[in-house]
């Protein structure tokens, strides 16, 4: 399947913002809210990407991924754990056969500045350690220079190195400057073989925003209409509370349809979100507003 990346697909920025504002007026209550909150919980890539991460911290996070809450409320486990490459084996061991995937960032995350051979070696290392999913970053510098072939080839080569592991391509939309660039980067990533496209590393502000996510969802929709292939979407960074998460779900449902409302095709890259979802689920079931004092800190 060919696509001409010299073409610019114009994006109506004002239109996108208006559409987003419309999504945000949807009122999700009662059973639908419960369903959406449990679904959002199952879509979380519980993430720790800090310089101060340790094996114990990762193990603790894995425990949380499998059993998010100790108590009388039914809280589903999350989709995956997202860590730096050295912690893949630790996470793999801690998660066992729980069904929670291990995702690893790779390709010199978060900057992406490294030689191609180093990036490929890093990806292969993660896959050998047992990673089920690889989150790569594109070289934003090359992309912004207009060197689209570079970006395309980069994604192709990493995809090849991934083997059976799923590939998520981080566009780092906070550095792409325009929505047109977001659209173009999404198209390049998908045509080059990405299984998922992801907004951000979480290290750059702004991280995931609704307009950017909508542009990416529309790119996924157009790609699906052309090729019949369903690409996944992962907004990451800055999604901290239940209300925001539900707004994203509304956006997915109304742009791509119910098929995408499952963890195989939609993920949240988040850490604080899980706690808020648990709190809100407990609130919904007990009718009493909850306090952070009674839930684990991370």
């Amino acid at each position: 399947m060919k696509s001409d990346f010299r073409h610019i697909i114009p994006i109506d920025k004002v239109g996108i913002e208006e559409r987003v504002a419309r999504f945000n007026t949807r009122s999700i209550k009662k059973e639908s809210k419960m369903f959406a909150m449990r679904l959002a919980m199952q879509m979380i890539d519980l993430t720790t990407l800090e310089g101060m991460d340790t094996d114990r911290k990762v193990e603790q996070l894995c425990n949380k991924a499998i059993r998010p809450f100790n108590g009388p409320h039914e809280i589903p486990k999350v989709a995956a754990i997202c860590v730096y490459p050295p912690f893949v084996s630790t996470a793999k061991k801690a998660l066992g056969d729980s069904g929670v995937h291990v995702a690893s960032v790779a390709t010199s995350f978060p900057s992406g500045h490294a030689s191609m051979s180093e990036k490929i070696a890093e990806v292969k290392y993660c896959v050998n350690e047992g990673a089920d999913e690889i989150d790569m970053v594109i070289s934003r510098g090359e992309f912004l220079k207009g060197n689209y072939n570079f970006t395309f080839d980069e994604v192709c080569q990493i995809k090849e190195a991934c083997g059976k592991a799923h590939l998520k391509v981080i566009l780092e939309t906070g550095e792409l400057q325009t929505l047109e660039n977001v659209r173009k980067a999404s198209d390049i990533a998908m045509y080059a073989g990405a299984d998922f496209i992801k907004t951000s590393t979480g290290k750059v502000s702004p991280a995931a925003t609704q307009p950017v996510t909508l542009v990416m969802l529309e790119a996924i929709r157009d790609y699906y209409l052309k090729t019949g292939i369903k690409i996944g979407m992962k907004p990451a960074g800055g999604i901290r509370d239940t209300k925001t998460a539900l707004r994203y779900l509304v956006m997915v449902k109304e742009t791509l349809g119910s098929d995408w409302l499952n963890p195989d095709l939609f993920r949240f890259g988040a850490s604080a979100l899980a706690n808020d979802l648990i709190m809100q689920i407990v609130k919904q079931e007990t009718g009493v507003y909850q306090s952070g004092d009674y839930f684990s800190k991370d």
Partner: peptide
């Protein structure tokens, strides 16, 4: 009701 039962 909320003034007296809010957990926080």
């Amino acid at each position: 009701e909320p003034f007296s039962n809010h957990m926080d």
